[in-house]
């Protein structure tokens, strides 16, 4: 799992974005290769969403360059981004809970048959494809007519990802896919992310959770206050280090030092008091 000489699909060089005089993102460089997962980690407000929005075409970057398939691009709308094969699966998933699985899968890209005023949905075909695509990724849903709202969070996440892959995504951006899920469900989603990688997609996996990132990632980028604070291949980093960096690294050490000086002045229950303060 060392550095992989796969072709680069998407690369950012010194990309920055400012809103007025606020620099949300500064000097971010990032590469996404075919068949690899690039994990982007960071605390709230670190600039993760700004980064996704630039790649997804919702915002334009104000500095640096973005290259997709060897071509310098400046996206002006999500359509541009989609047109280049970059699919974003947002946290809200863009699924309609009351609609059935197959209807959701093909929503906006319905397969039709017949002519003129009698053009109608090719239901059998859409159900078949939905079933196949889900099976390919190891999700078995016995009844494709079941509404999406009745599924678990992990299954929904998987359907949104399967949909993006089926409709021709080359790069998949996953915005915190495991954030709202339990342990089991996160496992299902992570397995699925790995399958997307094995299918040859380049994946950008945005997450808070270094454990999840380390399970699947080939490359790790940590954002801190709009800058890249760590950029490392899997071979060069351990989970401990990643967790520590993610938690704030140097800042955390300073904090622990500060806390220990506070707690030493309050007496022998220092450790307990200290950890409580940390959580608060």
């Amino acid at each position: 799992m060392s550095e992989n000489p796969n072709t680069e699909i998407l690369s950012l060089t010194d990309v920055g974005k400012s809103y007025g005089n606020v620099h949300a993102l500064r000097g971010v460089s990032l590469a996404v290769r075919q068949g690899e997962i690039t994990c982007v980690l960071g605390d709230n407000g670190a600039g993760k969403s700004t980064l996704i929005k630039i790649i997804a075409g919702l915002h334009q970057h104000s500095e640096g360059t973005m290259v997709v398939n060897g071509e310098d691009v400046h996206f002006t709308s999500p359509r541009d981004s989609l047109g280049r094969g970059i699919a974003t699966v947002y946290q809200d998933l863009a699924l309609v809970p009351l609609m059935s699985i197959w209807r959701n899968f093909f929503l906006g890209q319905e397969v039709r048959k017949g002519f003129g005023p009698f053009r109608r949905l090719d239901v059998a075909r859409m159900m078949e494809v939905t079933g196949q695509e889900l099976a390919k990724m190891g999700i078995s849903v016995p009844d494709l007519d079941r509404s999406v709202g009745a599924l678990s969070g992990g299954q929904r996440q998987c359907i949104a990802i399967a949909r993006a892959i089926y409709f021709g995504a080359k790069v998949l951006i996953l915005d915190e896919p495991t954030a709202a899920l339990g342990v089991k469900q996160s496992g299902v989603v992570l397995k699925y992310v790995a399958k997307a990688r094995d299918a040859g997609l380049g994946v950008i996996f945005i997450t808070h959770n270094p454990h999840h990132a380390y399970l699947v990632g080939n490359h790790f980028v940590i954002l801190n206050r709009g800058r890249v604070s760590l950029d490392s291949a899997r071979a060069d980093i351990t989970l401990d280090r990643l967790t520590n960096e993610m938690a704030g690294g140097a800042e955390l050490e300073a904090l622990s030092h500060e806390l220990s000086s506070v707690s030493s002045s309050t007496g022998p229950t220092a450790a307990a008091a200290g950890s409580r303060t940390t959580e608060g």
């Binding site: 809200d92 809970p97 009351l98 209807r103 906006g108 239901v123």
Partner: peptide, 17 residues
């Protein structure tokens, strides 16, 4: 059985999605 019908359910169920 039509695309428009699918869209009607979708815009009522979750317009943002």
């Amino acid at each position: 059985r039509t695309r428009v019908g699918n869209w009607i359910f979708a815009v009522g169920g979750d317009p943002a999605a």
